[in-house]
């Protein structure tokens, strides 16, 4: 089995397309769900998928080939030249937790709407329609 670094140079384009492509496809699939689905829980699922895609895109931008995690563990203090970009990771870390809290708030609103209107379909919730 080859080292990861050798594989990286050989299939650089393929890996790049795989990682960026996955992130962009997740964003697009989530957006499709948000725009075209009628059920409120489905819309929340679409938002959650978009969130995942954006997080993956951020971490992928910060990656450096043959990099190590930005942690100065004992015996590896000199590896600073190989470390990946820590800033996107720090941003994504808090974004995941905030995303969970915002999803929970959205779902609680959906539960309240269902109790009031007895439906979760956005076409049937039409009390404010003129």
């Amino acid at each position: 089995m080859m080292e990861f670094s050798e594989i990286f140079f050989k299939y650089k384009d393929l890996i790049s397309i795989a990682v960026y492509g996955t992130a962009i496809m997740l964003i697009i699939i989530g957006l499709y769900g948000v725009l075209l689905k009628k059920h409120l829980v489905k819309i929340a699922i679409g938002l959650s998928i978009m969130d995942s895609g954006i997080n993956l895109l951020f971490v992928a931008v910060g990656y450096i080939q043959n990099g190590t995690a930005p942690i100065f563990s004992p015996g590896h203090e000199g590896d600073v030249a190989k470390m990946v970009d820590p800033v996107p990771q720090a941003l994504v870390l808090t974004a995941i937790v905030i995303g969970f809290a915002v999803t929970a708030l959205a779902l609680s609103l959906i539960i309240r709407l269902y109790k009031h209107h007895h439906t979760a379909n956005i076409d049937q919730i039409n009390s404010l329609k003129w």
Partner: peptide
Amino acid sequence: FFYLLQAPDVAITE
């Protein structure tokens, strides 16, 4: 994916 992209903190959170 996060683990392979050298982001163990984000992998634990996810």
